[in-house]
């Protein structure tokens, strides 16, 4: 007997569609949207990433290489070894954010996962669409020239609603 995997190639008409709203600019919160968006594209799902508020830093040329991970306010944070928690009183000490960011970047790199800008390159190469939020651009006084060249447009909330008709939505 032969079993052929079902790759759903015939589902074109009612194709699945996913929109991910990336609203955070912390290093750790940049990744969930990227990992899931990349996975969706690999499953043949039409995928749109919409960057808003602090998530804008992920696509802003001057900031996208420099996202940080901070232990401040993160009571769940433990050190990479054992189950040692970081006391919240120490979290805001000078150097803590730098140290935590460096460590997290190392762990991510060890898994062969790219940094944020390169990850977005991969998502675009896989057919993903990047969109920027109009209000965030206006608030930060940024325009297309400040953003990655592959951002397809700065769009407003109504445009986004129209574009994501029938899509599944993730807010991160």
């Amino acid at each position: 007997m032969t079993i052929i995997p079902n790759f759903d190639d015939d589902d074109d008409d009612e194709g699945r569609k996913l929109a991910i709203i990336c609203s955070k600019g912390n290093l750790d919160m940049a990744y969930p949207g990227l990992v899931l968006g990349n996975a969706a594209l690999g499953e043949g799902v039409e995928t749109h990433l919409f960057f808003t508020f602090w998530g804008f830093d992920m696509i802003t040329k001057s900031r996208m290489h420099d996202l940080k991970f901070s232990p401040v306010g993160n009571t769940a944070m433990h050190l990479p070894m054992k189950d040692l928690r970081v006391p919240q009183a120490l979290a805001p000490m000078p150097g803590m954010t730098g140290m935590a960011t460096k460590k997290m970047k190392e762990q991510i790199a060890d898994l062969g996962i790219p940094e944020v800008p390169e990850f977005l390159d991969q998502i675009v190469a896989a057919g993903g669409h990047l969109w920027a939020c109009r209000m965030s651009a206006d608030m930060q006084d940024l325009d297309e020239t400040d953003l990655r060249d592959d951002v397809e447009g700065i769009i407003n909330a109504a445009d986004f609603m129209e574009m994501t008709k029938g899509a599944q939505l993730l807010f991160i």
Partner: peptide, 24 residues
Amino acid sequence: RRVDKVGGFPTKQQFQLFPKKPGK
């Protein structure tokens, strides 16, 4: 990603050759 970075076959090409679900 590994097929791209280690194998040298760009992501775009993988999607062209094996449409929609290249990994699988």
